[in-house]
């Protein structure tokens, strides 16, 4: 069990060291076998992982990885959970909605019925947005730019659909505007990351995206 965990840590360390330090990663892997034989694989693997993390800011690929993780953990994941919260009816404060928030309000019997009828569809749209953001976070960390574009297109389409539905139903779209601004910021960051990735790995630049 400990050895399996240690091997997983060594794999993680190898990934963190990046292409520029591939030789050192292999050197660590080879010495890990000695450490495993001497029954000290875990401390050795932890040390290698700490060393690899320490090397991250020293090479471009590592810096790209750090910034990608900051973007994902600091923006995409919180946004995804907010949207999932809206979809599950847990939040109405941030882009959420209920019938009472509409300008017509609950006092308007003509609007209450269609608004209530549309609620399941709107909840599904929010859930889709949240799920798409989680997917976007995953593919962004994998640097799979084709799937990043697809996830981005899905998010844009879902946001637009949500906006149209909420406008038609006279629901409060003010908070959706905040979401749109967040999406614009997020898109800017992702475009910058894609360009940075293309500079570091010119041979694997996203050909289909035109970035």
């Amino acid at each position: 069990m400990i050895e399996a965990l240690s091997r997983a840590l060594m794999q993680l360390a190898t990934c963190c060291l990046g292409e520029g330090r591939r030789e050192w990663a292999f050197a660590m892997q080879a010495e890990f076998e000695e450490a495993a034989e001497a029954r000290t694989p875990f401390s050795f693997a932890c040390g290698c992982l700490i060393a690899a993390w320490g090397e991250l800011p020293r090479h471009a690929e590592g810096r790209l990885g750090i910034v990608s993780h900051v973007l994902v953990l600091g923006l995409l994941i919180p946004l995804a959970f907010l949207q999932l919260g809206c979809g599950l009816g847990l939040s109405t404060g941030h882009g959420g909605f209920d019938v009472g928030l509409g300008p017509g309000g609950p006092q308007d019997p003509y609007l209450a019925s269609p608004q209530l009828t549309a609620m399941p569809a709107l909840h599904i749209l929010w859930l889709m947005l949240g799920a798409a953001h989680l997917h976007l976070a995953w593919v962004l960390l994998e640097r799979d730019w084709d799937r990043v574009v697809k996830a981005g297109a899905l998010i844009a389409a879902a946001t637009l659909t949500l906006f149209i539905f909420m406008e038609v139903l006279l629901l409060d779209t003010g908070t959706l505007m905040v979401l749109a601004a967040e999406l614009a910021i997020e898109t800017g960051f992702i475009l910058a990351l894609a360009r940075w990735h293309a500079r570091i790995f010119p041979n694997t630049a996203p050909a289909t995206t035109g970035w």
Binding site: R21, W24, A27, M28, E31, E34, A35, A38, S43, F44, C46, G47, C48, L49, I50, A51, G54, E55
Partner: peptide
Amino acid sequence: RHGYDLMKETGLLSGTLYPLLM
């Protein structure tokens, strides 16, 4: 010298030895 032997002889941990060697 091998890395693991250097660790044992110096008492340095892998997290210190490898960045130093690099």
